[in-house]
C-alpha cells in the first residue's frame, strides 16, 4: 500500500465496517431463521389459503436477485411511504431474503422426517404439539444443519451487496479507502481475504458441529 499513514487513519472506519458486517449478518440470520421457521410451520401445518400466498412470496424472493430486491425496497420504498435509512433497509431486506431460503430448507427438513417417527409418537400418546416440539423440530434441526450452514455463509457474502445502497459495512469502508487513495486493487484483495477467512471459519464451525451431532444420525 502506497501510504501507510492513510491506512492508519482509515482503520477505525474499516473496523467499524467489519463490526457492522458481523452485526448485520448475525441479526439478519437470526431474524431470517425465526421468520423462516414460522413460514415453514405455517406452510406445513396451515390451511391451503395460508400455504399458497406464502409459496408465491417465497418463490418470488428466491427467483429474483438480492440486489434487485434491495433496490426495490430502498429506492422504491419511499413511493409507497416506506422511507428507510440504508442500514435498516439492508437489514430488513437481508432478513426477508434469508427467511425465504430458510423456510424452504426447514420445510424440506420437516418433510424428510420418516413418518414412522411421528406415528411412534402418536402410539405412545403424545399430543400433536408434543410431537412437533419433541420429535419433529429436533429431527428437523439435524436434517437441515448442512444446508443451514451453507445459507449462513450465503448471507454473510450477501452483506457485501449492501455497500451498493451505501450501508457503511466492510465492503463500503474498504472500497471507500481504496478509491480515496487510488488503491482499488489492494482494497479489493484485502476484502477478498477477509471474507474468505470469515466464510471458511463459518464453514469449519459448521462441519465441527455436524461431526458432534453425528451420533444422532441414523444410517
Amino acid at each position: 500500500m502506497s501510504d501507510f499513514s492513510a491506512l492508519r487513519e482509515a482503520m477505525p472506519e474499516i473496523v467499524d465496517g467489519l463490526w457492522l458486517t458481523l452485526a448485520m449478518w448475525l441479526a439478519a440470520s437470526a431474524l431470517g431463521l425465526v421468520l423462516g421457521l414460522a413460514i415453514a410451520l405455517a406452510r406445513r401445518f396451515g390451511p391451503v389459503w395460508v400455504d399458497r400466498p406464502l409459496w408465491a412470496v417465497v418463490g418470488v424472493i428466491r427467483g429474483t436477485p438480492f440486489l434487485v430486491q434491495i433496490f426495490l425496497l430502498y429506492y422504491g420504498g419511499p413511493f409507497i411511504g416506506l422511507e428507510l435509512d440504508p442500514t435498516p433497509a439492508g437489514l430488513g431486506g437481508l432478513a426477508l431474503y434469508g427467511a425465504a431460503y430458510f423456510s424452504e430448507i426447514l420445510r424440506g427438513g420437516l418433510l424428510a422426517i420418516p413418518p414412522g417417527h411421528v406415528e411412534a409418537g402418536m402410539c405412545i400418546g403424545l399430543s400433536r404439539l408434543q410431537i412437533v416440539r419433541r420429535i419433529m423440530l429436533p429431527e428437523m434441526t439435524l436434517l437441515v444443519l448442512p444446508a443451514s450452514v451453507n445459507m449462513f455463509v450465503v448471507l454473510l457474502k450477501e452483506t457485501a451487496v449492501l455497500s451498493i445502497i451505501t450501508v457503511p459495512e466492510l465492503t463500503m469502508a474498504v472500497t471507500g479507502f481504496g478509491s480515496a487513495n487510488f488503491a482499488f486493487s489492494q482494497a479489493a484483495l484485502v476484502l477478498a481475504i477477509v471474507y474468505w477467512t470469515l466464510t471458511e471459519l463459518t464453514g469449519g464451525l459448521g462441519r465441527l458441529l455436524e461431526r458432534r451431532l453425528d451420533r444422532f444420525k441414523l444410517a
Binding site: 411412534a120 409418537g121 402410539c123 403424545l126
Partner: peptide
C-alpha cells in the same frame, strides 16, 4: 390401550435409549 412396535423400529434418533423409553412417561 395399545402399544405398537414397528418394522423400522422408529426410535427417535435424537434421544438415548433411555430417553426414547422415558419420553411417554414424562410427556404423557
Amino acid at each position: 390401550n395399545i402399544g405398537m412396535v414397528f418394522q423400522q423400529f422408529n426410535l427417535w434418533p435424537h434421544m438415548t435409549a433411555l430417553g426414547n423409553v422415558a419420553e411417554g412417561l414424562r410427556q404423557v
